[in-house]
Amino acid sequence: MTFLIQQTLIYAVPLMIVALAGVFAERSGIINLALEGIMIFGAFIGVLFVNLVQQAGVFSAAKDANDWVALQGFMILAMAVSALMGAVFSLLLSFAAVNLRADQTIGGTALNLLAPALVLFLIRIIANQNALQMAEGDAASWFMIKKSFFGYGRSDSMGFFGDTFIDKTYLATYICILLFVILSILLYKTRFGLRLRSCGENPQASDSLGINVYKMRYAGTTISGALAGMGGFVYALTTANCAATGDVAGFGFLALAVMIFGNWNPLNIAGASLLFGLFKCIAASYSSIDINGDGVFLLAEAGISPHLYRMLPYLITLIVLAFTSKKSRAPKAEGIPYDKGQR
């Protein structure tokens, strides 16, 4: 059970934060199909940062001294860098969509093609192989929170709560949840959030009230890019042992589906991403899930083909969308370039 909850959280949290990234862009009126590409780019930047800093030896003293507070700071720094570069990368989309009034679907697709190409090109030159990894050690030994930090011994139990939510988890997961809450409040309870959302519903009306629609759309897409970039790095850190491969297996698109399923509403999105995280977790580790802890691996022994488990997240997405899309209510002005002359 502990394993199931931890694994589900690991998959659900990047989905949640990237879906929120989609909400910020779409609420401001820009369709951000490039989430996948920005995630790939963010993952690469984060891993590259970790790799370079390790090579420079900045944190090796902290590592030797087992100073886990410093190491967690290192991880937060890497998250910040990937968020920053994700925001920069997303400027390509906002420039095309806002200033040039280009087709947002095609622009997003271009970014989705560009990110893996650029990332793989650079990885091949930097690492001479198809994946960029940490310079030394692995994600678990550098960044994972362990019970030994709190003075527990190897065989001590921290209780169900501690075992599940503290031991062998990543601080990144909780930072993402915290950011999710803060940004949801920003979007729904502040003046800035109201203005941003108005630009996605009726930009002409917002403009008539003195809101700069272009600026708001830039803000929405940039926040979106930062969150997606960070989500990409968190995904690489927690599920891929901090390695960038120019691929996040359609996670950005799953996040878009989560966003639609969640009806562009943070609370629903949080629920939806938990559901999708569960399916993704089943797909990734069906063979080692021991639900009630009796040593029987139910899913692996049910005689169902592993291919079905792997297909499940995508299949469920399609089915769920089929049931919910008639009721879903997208921001009214999303995808339409804002033209001042068009009142």
Binding site: A96, R101, A102, G107, L113, A117, L118, L120, F121, I125
Partner: peptide, 23 residues
């Protein structure tokens, strides 16, 4: 010493540009 992914970068750039062919 370069690799084939640079052509994917070129292709992506072309797609990006064709998003605003009208411009």
């Amino acid at each position: 010493a370069y690799n084939e992914y640079i052509t994917d970068v070129i292709i992506a750039t072309i797609v990006y540009l064709s998003a605003f062919t009208l411009v």
